[in-house]
Amino acid sequence: MFLINRRQMAGLAVWSATASRAWAQSPLTPREQELHEAAKREGEITWYSGQYSADSSEAVGRAFNARYPGVRCNVVRTTSQVAFQRLSQDARAGVAQCDVLSSTNGGHYIQLKRQNRLMQYRPANAEGLLPVLRQPDPDNFFQSTFLGIYLLGHNTSLVSEAEAPKSWADILDPKWKDRLAVGHPGYSGAIGLWALQMRNMFGNDFLRRFEANKPQVGRSSIDPVTMMTAGERPVGVAVPSASTLFAASRGNPLKVIYPTEGVIAAMSPSAIIRNAPHPNAAKLFMEFQTGPAMSAAVRLLFNESLRPDVPAPEGSRPLDQVTLLAPGMEEAERGVPEVREQWREIFGV
C-alpha cells in the first residue's frame, strides 16, 4: 500500500467522477430496462447493508438512484449480524420491510435458504463477474455482491514498519499487550469469519491467547481503523483493506499489512427476501450490484471491484498476488455461532 498524494487523489477524483457518470449514463441492458419499468411502479427498495461501510453503502444508494430514476434505494446500514437480527425481528413481527439482504456471513444465507425465506433469482449481469464470484449457489437463491479483504493495519506514527506484526501468529506475542484493536463477531460477520479461520489455523486456544493481549474490542470491523487513526491503539486486527486505504488517502498515518499466512476474503452474497415488498425493484438492485456501475462506485472508496471490466482500487495488492483465506459457507453457518459464544465467554463482551 502507498499513501496517495494530492496529485494522485486529484487524478483519482477525475477518473472516478468520469467513470461514475459513464456507468450511470450507459445504456441499460434489456433485463434492466424491463425491471426498471416494473420497479418504477413500486418506487423504492429497502436494502439491509452489512457488507459495505456507511460511506460506501450510501455511495451505492446514490449510484443506483442515478442509474434508475424513479426508484429510490433506502439504505439501512448496520453490521452484518445486526442486519440479520433485524431481519429475524421483522419475521417474528410478521412484517416485510427488507427487500435485499447483504451480509458478510455466508451462513446467514444457508439458514434462510433452508427456511424457504429467499426468492430465487439469477441476475443476468452476474455473467460478467469475476469467475470466482459468478455462482455461489447452484439453486440461485443468493448471488455474490461483495469481495472484502480483511488484514492487519498499523499507525505508522506509533509503530514502525519494521516493528509491525507480519503475520496473524505475531499478534499473539506478549509485546502487543494493550496495543491491538479488533471488532466483535457478535456484530460483524467478517470478524466471525476471521475468528473461525484463526481457530482452524491455530487451534481452539487461539482466542484465549489473543485475549491475553487485551485488545480493545469495538463492534464493526471498521472500528479498529477509527482507533488506529485516533492513536488509541497502534495495530488493527482483521481490518477492512478498503476502510484502511481510504483513511490513509485522507492523510492519516495508516498502512495495511498483508499477513504472511494470507488475508481473510469475505466473498459475500446478497439475496432477495421471499416476501420482499418491492420484488421488481429488488431484482433490479441485484442486477445493479452485479453490473459494472456498482463496482465503479465502490472502488472510489477503495473497495475491491467485482468485475474484470472495472479496475481494482488504487493502492491494493492484485488479488492474484494474495493468498485468500475463507471458511466455506456451510462451515461458517456452524462455526461462526460457536466462535461467537466462545468469544463472549473469553472476552466477557
Rank of each mutant, 00 (worst) to 15 (best):
G128R: 10
I4L: 15
V182F: 11
G70W: 05
E345A: 14
A19S: 15
N155T: 00
V60H: 05
T290D: 00
Q25S: 13
Q120G: 07
A282Y: 06
L101E: 02
E330K: 00
P269Y: 02
V75G: 07
A247I: 02
G153H: 07
R122T: 08
L112D: 01
F141S: 06
S49T: 11
T156G: 08
P234I: 01
F142P: 02
H184T: 07
G236P: 09
L147H: 08
S160H: 11
L325Q: 02
V225W: 12
T18P: 01
N213E: 11
R344Q: 15
G107D: 05
Q135K: 15
A22T: 08
E314H: 10
A17N: 13
S268L: 01
H278L: 07
A124D: 11
P269D: 09
G50K: 02
P259R: 07
M329H: 06
V82S: 10
E161W: 04
E44S: 15
F288T: 03
Q89R: 10
Q197A: 15
M201D: 14
A19P: 03
P259L: 03
M228Q: 13
E232T: 12
R209T: 05
T18C: 08
R250P: 02
Q81V: 15
Q33K: 13
G251C: 14
N74A: 08
L112I: 00
A54I: 10
E163K: 12
Y258L: 09
V237L: 02
E42G: 03
G291N: 02
A19M: 13
A326P: 02
Q143R: 11
G262L: 01
Y187S: 14
S221K: 02
M119W: 12
N155I: 04
A271D: 07
A281Y: 01
L35H: 09
A271K: 10
V239I: 14
G335Q: 11
G186L: 06
S102Q: 12
E34W: 11
G153T: 03
P259T: 09
C73N: 10
H36K: 08
S268W: 06
M329A: 05
A266H: 04
L3M: 13
Y121N: 05
G153F: 08
A38T: 04
L101K: 06
C98D: 03
M1I: 08
Y150E: 03
Y68I: 05
D309K: 00
L12S: 10
T244V: 15
R274C: 06
E44Q: 15
N303I: 01
L207R: 06
N275Y: 04
L12A: 14
L87A: 06
W168K: 07
W23K: 12
K113V: 01
H184E: 13
H108R: 05
A238G: 09
E304P: 00
A212S: 08
A162E: 14
N65L: 03
E42N: 05
Q33L: 08
A96S: 15
S241D: 15
R117E: 13
D99T: 09
S241V: 07
W15P: 04
S16R: 07
E34M: 10
S49F: 02
W194D: 04
E345S: 13
D173S: 10
L284R: 04
E44N: 09
R233P: 06
R92L: 15
E32R: 09
Y150W: 11
A297S: 09
T260I: 04
A83Y: 06
